[in-house]
Amino acid sequence: MRVGKRIPWQRVLLYLVLLGFASFYLMPVYVLVVTSLKSFAEVNLYRMWDLPHSFSLESFRKALLGGFGFTGLAHNFVNSFYVAIPATLASAFLGSLNGYVLSKWRFRGSNTLFTLLLFGMFIPYQSILIPLVQTLMKLGLYGSIPGLILAHTVYGIPITTLIFRNYYATVPRELVEAARIDGAGVLGVYTRIMLPVSMPGFVVVMIWQFTSIWNDFLFAVTIAQNPAVQPVTVALNNLAGSYIVEWNVQMAGALMAALPTLLVYIFLGRYFMRGLLAGSLKG
């Protein structure tokens, strides 16, 4: 009983709408890529949607190494990695300890403590910025990469604790009980039962933390104004705000600053999604 070749108009329309939205989301990337591949001679605001005639990597070279009157972003990339990697590891480790205790060793007041910790992830950081600068100055960490690492580690604790607590809640009680009968203590259960199954939890937390630390601007611009220690977001903002720097170089810089987190997202998207959904308090 074939109905012949009727065109399913509803489905066609559905796909057209989906494609329309896709082009809306891709539009900025199109401009980024197309512009950064153009040579200086070809850059023209009134032709910004046109494809490049020739293929040039000149803008990437300038964005990285600098040019007349401006420095490139190369060492800012290095700074961003220096900040993001240690802070990601440290906050993930602390979050895993907290999540373990708050899910498997509850005590009276542990939910209140958890709520108080979580509050730290929602505050506008403007409300702690002045004391933070003062404290870092006293510690001799103001304007330094370790200072930035410290800030990101501490303010990362709430979200890493939340993700690990929800993750460890899925580890069956029986496993913990069995290890306890075998004589394992608090640390024994953690190292023998929890850590071996923690890998997915660590991946989610580390992706989340790396992305938010890499993308941070507020802490970076407040604590690390000095060009020598500036992370890439601050340097990119300066580069883009400068009238000397050509438009294609700005676009190449933005593209490169976006690349690390974009690659993480493309290749580890599944874990990225889990972190996102955990961020909304739903495990």
């Binding site: 601007f217 903002n237 933005a254 987190t261 974009l262």
Partner: peptide
């Protein structure tokens, strides 16, 4: 994917 970008990149573009 825009979620994975920094607001700075978004703002510049």
């Amino acid at each position: 994917y825009p979620m994975s970008l920094s607001f700075i990149v978004t703002g510049v573009v």
